[in-house]
Design a protein around this nucleic acid. Sequence first.
DNA 1: GTTGAAAATCTTCCGCC
DNA 2: GGCGGAAGATTTTCAAC
Lengths: 151, 151
Amino acid sequence: MRLNELDERIVHALAEDARRSYADIGAEVGLSAPAVKRRVDRLRAEGAITGFTVRVDPAALGWETEGFIEIYCRRNTSPEAIHRGLSRYPEVASASTVTGEADALVQVFASDMRHFERVLERIAGEPFVERTKSVLVLSPLLRRFSSGAPS
Amino acid sequence: MRLNELDERIVHALAEDARRSYADIGAEVGLSAPAVKRRVDRLRAEGAITGFTVRVDPAALGWETEGFIEIYCRRNTSPEAIHRGLSRYPEVASASTVTGEADALVQVFASDMRHFERVLERIAGEPFVERTKSVLVLSPLLRRFSSGAPS
DNA sequence: GTTGAAAATCTTCCGCC
DNA sequence: GGCGGAAGATTTTCAAC
């Protein structure tokens, strides 16, 4: 699938503020409100836009501690097994299999350091996990867009 | 700041679909539409909700290659300098200063491997960057919520 | 927090290019 | 195929309670 420049500008406008009116976005990109809606509907149908969500301040919601956990798996662990194992943790915000020494990189939000430690220990104890290596986030500098499915 | 259970349920509903109407959310949590709006307005004013955004499928938008770059900075580089340097790259989706050997962890989306390599080289050439270490994402397993500021 | 009304927006339809 | 204008339906918004 290929998007033209108009679609990209619409997605960009929605990424900055998904509650802007179609007429408002249309004024920016040079289209009428119905034309913008039609394109957004098409982008949703095609799967380019998977939904609309709210941007939250984790700290304000009580998730003050953020970190990344590199997971080193046992031999013959499938990505599906990692997904199944990690999706049970509400603290896991994102996870991907990666190249390099580690097998997966997991982003975790916890309420505080003790909570983070507890999550880390539980993940490290998963049967498919051989060992872990983790770093804590000091300050979030930049967060731009949201991708993927809600859960 | 502390949110009560009603606020959390409203944020949760918006996280799943930020375009649901206030009346619809109100029916779920047991409030009228204006009551829900007032709480959302308050959450925005307090900073718990920092905005509304669209959830996109990076691959559908042509961002097929994802990776993480660890940045090792020169001495006396402030987080603000890193932020200024990285915010110019549209390919940078998120960035945080972290504990451990590296100084910052940067998430990058690129159209393909050549594009990723070009971004990596440009970032590695930034004056505040001493060296970098990067991993490529093989498969995104899980992506849950969006946090932080738009840019 | 609720109700009710006004204003804005969304959504669909239709004619046009 | 896509676009703009206009209609009704829905939602947002702001009163008063």
